[in-house]
Design a protein around this nucleic acid. Structure first.
Lengths: 327, 327
DNA sequence: CTCCGAAATAACAACGTTGTTACTATAATG
DNA sequence: CATTATAGTAACAACGTTGTTATTTCGGAG
C-alpha cells in the first residue's frame, strides 16, 4: 500500500490538508511545520498519487507522444530532445508505440494535457480527440490539428537551387519515392519542382530511389550509382542516415567530397558533425524544431484552441564545404 | 471539458451509478437499459477517466516500460512484442525514455501496476520502488528484483561449444568488450569460458571488439578481420545487427558462409530469416522472452511479491546451415 | 387488494489530492 | 481586560469512478 498525505499527517500530528499545502510550498504554513512535514514525507518515501492529483486539478502535467511506426529509429533524437525540453518545463512525457488512434485513446483516458503525433499521412480523421493534439508534419495533410511544418519540400528545393546556382545541372536525389509517408513525398516533390524550374538534366539517375532511410540503403544505392555510365556532379540525400551510407560507399570507391562530388544532406542535426567529411545540410535545425513543438504544445495546453494553427519553420542551408562549383 | 458518466446519466435519465454498471457490463442492469446507456455514451464520445478509475480501484491496468538508453534501436522489436502481448491482456503499456530512476518515479506517481526495466548494469539500487519491478537482465546484477535472465553467457558458450564439437579451434568473437553494459559483458564472458574450457587457439583476432552493436560496426570489423594474416575458421557474432554488417562485408569480399567461414549469431529473432544467407543462431527466441516477461509482470501485479524471483530461460541453438565441420 | 420478495435502480461512501472556507490560538489595540 | 485582526491550522467539498447499501418498482401469492 502506498503512503498518502494522510499517513504523513498522522505521523506529523497535523491535518492532511496542511500536509498538502506544506508539500506544495504554500505560504499558508509556517516554515518549521513545513520542514517537519517534508522530512517525514521523505522518510516515508512519499510519492504523490498522480491519479488523485490530476483528478482534482484537471491537469496531468503530462504530454503523450505517439512514436511513429515508420522510421522509428530516425526520430529517436527528436524524441529525446522533446523529452528533455518537456522535462525542463516540469512536464513528463509518456510514449506509446501503438497505432495512432489507439494511442490517442489511451492518452485520452489518462487525460494527458496534450499529445504530439508524427504525421505519417494517416492523420486525416484526428478531429474527435478530446485531448488537444499537435502534429509534426505537413500542414495540408492534417487540417484540424495545429501543425509544425518544417517545409521539407522547400528545404530540398533550396538545396537544389543552391547546387544549380553554383553550376550543377546533373543532380541525383536519394530518397524514398513511392510511399504513403507524406514527409518523404514532400521532399521528393521539392526536388522535382527544382528540376523543372531550373531545367536540370533528366539523366537516368536523376532519382535514386531507396526503400527506406536506413544507412545501408544509401550505401547500396551509392555503390550502384557509381557504376552508371552517366554520373551526377552533385547529390542531395534526403536523410542523415542515408548520407552516412552514401559517404561510406564513397570512401570505399575513393570518391571524394567535394572534389569529385558535391553533396547536400537533409537533416540539420548535431550528428552531422560526427561524419568523417564536413557535409552541408539543409533543413530546420533539430533544436529549433523541438523548441517550436514544445511551444505549440504549451499553447494548446493553456488555450485548448490555438488560433495560429500552423507554424511554418523556415529551412535553411548550413554550408560546410561539401559543395564545389561546377564549371 | 470531458464527458463523464454523470453527463451520460443525465442524458439517459438514470443515476450515474447505473451508468457505471451498464458500461462495465454488470448483470445488475437490465439489458435494454444497458443498451440505451451504451448508445448514449457512444454518441457523447465518452472515454473513461483513467485517473478516477485507478484512484478507486487501485489498479491502473498499465505497465510502464523503461526504454534503455543504450542500444535503443536493438530493443525495438522486443518492446513492440511486449506491447502486443500486454495489449492482448488488455493492459496498456506506457514507455518512458528517461533515465531509469526518474522513469520509475514517474511510473510510481502514475501507479502503473508494474514496471519493466532493462538491466544495463546500474540497477543496483532499485529496492525503494513502491511499484513492483521486473527486470530483463542478469540475475546477479539486480538482486532485489524479479528478473528474467536469458543466460547470455551460456548462450555464447553453447555456440562456441558447438563450433568446437565440429572441429573448429580458431574462432573469433565479435562483440562489445569494454562496457558497463552487463548484458554484453556476460556474452563475452561466455566466450572466454569456452576458450578456456575447449582450449581454443589464442590467435590475434580471438576477440574482435566493436564499439556498439550497430551493423556498420560489424561491417568495419569484418573487413579488418579479413585483412589479417591469421583468420578464424568460425565466427560468433554477439548480435543480429552486427551479423548483418559482417555478412555484408563477406558478400563484398566473396567470403561465403559456411564454405569459407562458419557462423553463429546471437539473437533468435524473426528478422534472421530476412538475411540473404541462412544463419544459425543461439539464444532464447524472442517470443519466449516476451512471453515470460509478460508472465513475470502479471505475477508481480497480482502477488506484489513473487516468490520465484529469478526466471532463467534456456538458450538454444537454431541450426540453419551456416556451420561446416572443420577438418 | 394487500403484502412479500425479487429485480432493478438509486444513493452513498470511498479512493488521494487540492482549493476554499471555517475555526482557533495569538498578538495587537484601545 | 475585552475586542479585533491575523496567522496558522483544521475541516470540508469536489474531482470521476466503483462497490456496497438502500430504496423503489413490479409481479405474483394469499
Amino acid at each position: 500500500m502506498s503512503v498518502t498525505i494522510k499517513d504523513i499527517a498522522r505521523a506529523a500530528g497535523v491535518s492532511y490538508s496542511t500536509v498538502s499545502k506544506a508539500l506544495r510550498n504554500s505560504p499558508l504554513v509556517k516554515e518549521p511545520t513545513r520542514k517537519h512535514i517534508k522530512k517525514i514525507a521523505d522518510q516515508l518515501g512519499y510519492q504523490p498519487n498522480a491519479a488523485a492529483r490530476s483528478l482534482v486539478s484537471k491537469k496531468s502535467h503530462t504530454i503523450g507522444i505517439v512514436w511513429p511506426t515508420i522510421e522509428r529509429a530516425a526520430h529517436s533524437s527528436l524524441i529525446t530532445s522533446m523529452n528533455n525540453r518537456l522535462e525542463q518545463l516540469s512536464y513528463t512525457s509518456l510514449i506509446s508505440i501503438n497505432e495512432m488512434e489507439f494511442a490517442i485513446n489511451v492518452f485520452n483516458r489518462y487525460r494527458v494535457d496534450a499529445v504530439l503525433v508524427f504525421d505519417d499521412g494517416s492523420n486525416q480523421g484526428l478531429s474527435p480527440s478530446k485531448v488537444p493534439v499537435v502534429s509534426y508534419g505537413i500542414a495540408e495533410s492534417s487540417p484540424f490539428v495545429p501543425t509544425v511544418d518544417v517545409q521539407r519540400r522547400k528545404a530540398i528545393y533550396l538545396a537544389a537551387e543552391y547546387l544549380h546556382s553554383i553550376g550543377h545541372t546533373k543532380i541525383s536525389y536519394f530518397g524514398v519515392m513511392d510511399t504513403p509517408d507524406v514527409m518523404q513525398r514532400e521532399k521528393a516533390k521539392g526536388f522535382d519542382l527544382a528540376v523543372e524550374k531550373f531545367k536540370l538534366e533528366a539523366f537516368p539517375t536523376l532519382h535514386v530511389p531507396v526503400s527506406s532511410l536506413e544507412s545501408y540503403e544509401g550505401y547500396l544505392a551509392a555503390k550502384k550509382l557509381m557504376q552508371q555510365e552517366v554520373k551526377p556532379t552533385a547529390i542531395i540525400s534526403s536523410s542523415h542516415d542515408l548520407t552516412k551510407g552514401i559517404l561510406r560507399a564513397f570512401q570505399e570507391l575513393n570518391v571524394s567530397v567535394p572534389e569529385d562530388m558535391s553533396f547536400i544532406s537533409y537533416d540539420t542535426i548535431p550528428e552531422v558533425n560526427e561524419l568523417e567529411v564536413p557535409i552541408s545540410t539543409v533543413g530546420v535545425p533539430l533544436e529549433i524544431i523541438t523548441e517550436k513543438l514544445t511551444e505549440a504544445l504549451m499553447d494548446v495546453v493553456v488555450e485548448h484552441d490555438s488560433k495560429e494553427n500552423i507554424i511554418y519553420l523556415e529551412p535553411g542551408l548550413s554550408l560546410r564545404n561539401s559543395c564545389k562549383p561546377f564549371t
